[in-house]
Design a protein around this nucleic acid. Structure first.
Lengths: 354, 354
DNA sequence: ATTAGCACTCAACATCATTAAGTGCTAAAA
DNA sequence: TTTTAGCACTTAATGATGTTGAGTGCTAAT
């Protein structure tokens, strides 16, 4: 158990380190503690913090730097939320007001604002209503054997794709297939649709189209596109500022990770809904430090996540990826603000407005 | 005018510099010239090349490095095309064969292969038939006041967008607007459509919808999306390898440039079709060195472009962005191969196949 | 429990010498 | 006239050596 003063010392070390990026010495801390103590006293406290594993030295006579566990302790016990700066607030309101955003634009724009405000990387995800169902499927001939396939899901996702059909396929055949899909699959969850398409719908479709493989390919492609998570990432290149990577290849791997939807989804914990290992820091904003991820690449980084609830329109997520050394209270404050803001505006969008 | 041997010396300097990245000395060259001359002789030739501005010293007693003009001279006079390596060729054929690509997938896949083969950044652009015309426009109600707008261009581009309409708008009104657009604008070039929409179509639409502003916004959005160039960029992160940027901000600006469609289009010379300043190096593959662009950011880089002609289906473009020090003959060979390959496969796609 | 004082450590910086790769120039050889 | 051997000269890179300053840990006194 830490003493009151030791906590203050840890907090100050983290604060100074965030600002300067340099190891923090005992004299520096002396000047910024509320009580008046000597540097020697602080050195004693620091020794205690170090043996508790909360701070580290970069070399035997250097100042101290917060350790991974130090950050975790800070987040769990020391961090106190700050109100969002009124300048920030104004800016956000102004931007949101200046244009009316249709559909996902609001969510995309949020990522943009968040990354600009923090200079980190922002990731947002539109609201998704539980399980997505197939609402409709259409094929329209465009002439010249090109066909437009159009797929609509209950969550309002619309995906279109054009393809060219073999000359052996006639309009009536397409019509028939379309009817089969609409009769058999509409209303079912996308996953089910995919399964059935691969199993007992094949014979049904084969009645109309001789070799349906290529057709199934097309439908598959559309389905997975429709059901894929639609991430909006902004400020990707800010990683270059904060990840002081010695190795270019690591950096490339990191970017690859972010650009790969599955991996990003895993990072954001989208696939394990019972991820209650870390309780919400406050209001459902959670912070996960890089070293807590299985992936080595995220060392010295930190991911701050928040879920927003747009009522019946589903839940979405916003997140900030940045260095583990960052002004947490500000960033958490911002995310918390955006949770509310997005929840409200999205609900508004579908309800009052139009 | 350079002597025969001076040319050879320049060529060898460039070759060695490409391989090692280090300044090249007279003794190194001595070992790799076809004729037997002493290093002193080569030093004389080098002095000549230097006063011609084709090579440079990094410091007063260093070896030589090709200069910007040196590269230009090399490209214009010394470069001799090489056949594409049979390994590369096999790989390309294999990848293209293993799957049937619909629509733009072929073009996107080409970018991927090119960037993987070269370790540089590849940019491809699908075939575009001269001026794009509006082929059709549809609005379909999705229920719950959500409407799906669907726009089709003559080039086969299909864009969809969902939006929410105010409760004051009825289905009949939408129907009417849709009819107006289809009656008045179908068959016209997108640019004309945009203009007319903003000018003499406003009163016409206002007859049906009271405040058509928001509606015009939506249509505008779809139109510009449909008419925008669809670049496929692959290997973006390879820039980190070859652009040894000291300044992170420059790097970020460079990425911004690439990610901004207008700027990228300008870079590729898409807006000045009479860009005949640099004659094709061979078969229509052109090389532009970074310092030849107005933009400072591209210093020490090089852009190799090729246009492919998919017959009546239009023209497209492929390009490689890399360091000015690169194995030009290989890269040019690859681009030249892809020109043919793409042209043929795209034509095939629309004609024979389905 | 706190503090003054002091010996100690180590990165960062500067100075200096050494080395190796490369040049330009001169005068002789081809 | 062109080529070459030879040599003095330049410079980046490397490594050894010393100095400084910020910081620590420990001890003994408060």
């Amino acid at each position: 158990m830490l003493t009151k003063r030791e906590m203050l010392v840890l907090k100050e070390i983290i604060r100074h380190y965030n600002e300067s990026g340099q190891p923090v010495g005992s004299k520096t801390i002396m000047g910024s503690l509320p009580m008046k103590v000597s540097s020697a006293t602080i050195r004693n406290d620091m020794a205690a913090l170090e043996s508790a594993g909360l701070i580290e030295k970069t070399h035997s006579s250097s100042g101290r730097v917060p350790s991974d566990t130090g950050y975790r302790y800070y987040l769990d016990h020391l961090l106190q939320p700050t109100m969002v700066d009124s300048d920030d607030l104004n800016m956000i309101q102004t931007i949101f007001r200046q244009k009316f955003y249709q559909g996902d634009e609001l969510v995309a724009q949020s990522a943009k604002i968040l990354s600009e405000l923090t200079h980190y990387t922002a990731i947002t995800l539109g609201p998704e209503v539980g399980v997505m169902h197939l609402e409709g499927f259409q094929l329209m001939p465009l002439g010249n054997r090109r066909v437009l396939a159009l797929l609509i899901t209950t969550s309002g996702q619309v995906v279109n794709k054009t393809f060219v059909i073999p000359d052996t396929v006639t309009g009536e055949q397409l019509e028939a297939v379309m009817r089969v899909i609409n009769d058999q699959l509409v209303g079912k969850p996308i996953a089910t649709v995919m399964n059935q398409l691969d199993s007992h719908l094949i014979p049904l479709i084969s009645q109309y189209i001789h070799s349906p493989d290529f057709f199934l390919d097309v439908v598959h492609g559309i389905l997975s596109e429709a059901s894929a998570d639609r991430f909006h990432i902004s400020g990707k290149m800010n990683i270059l500022d904060y990840a002081h990577m010695d190795d270019v290849n690591q950096l490339k791997s990191l970017y690859h990770l972010i650009d790969t939807d599955d991996q990003l989804a895993a990072l954001l914990g989208l696939n394990d809904p019972d991820d209650d290992t870390k309780p919400p820091t406050e209001h459902g904003v959670t912070v996960r430090l890089g070293h807590e991820f299985p992936n080595q690449l995220l060392a010295n980084m930190s991911l701050i996540r928040a879920t927003y609830h747009a009522g019946e329109y589903g839940d979405g997520m916003i997140a900030i990826l940045g260095p583990s050394s960052m002004p947490y209270s500000r960033v958490i404050g911002l995310l918390d603000l955006f949770r509310d803001e997005l929840a409200r505006r999205i609900a508004d969008y579908y309800r009052d407005h139009g």
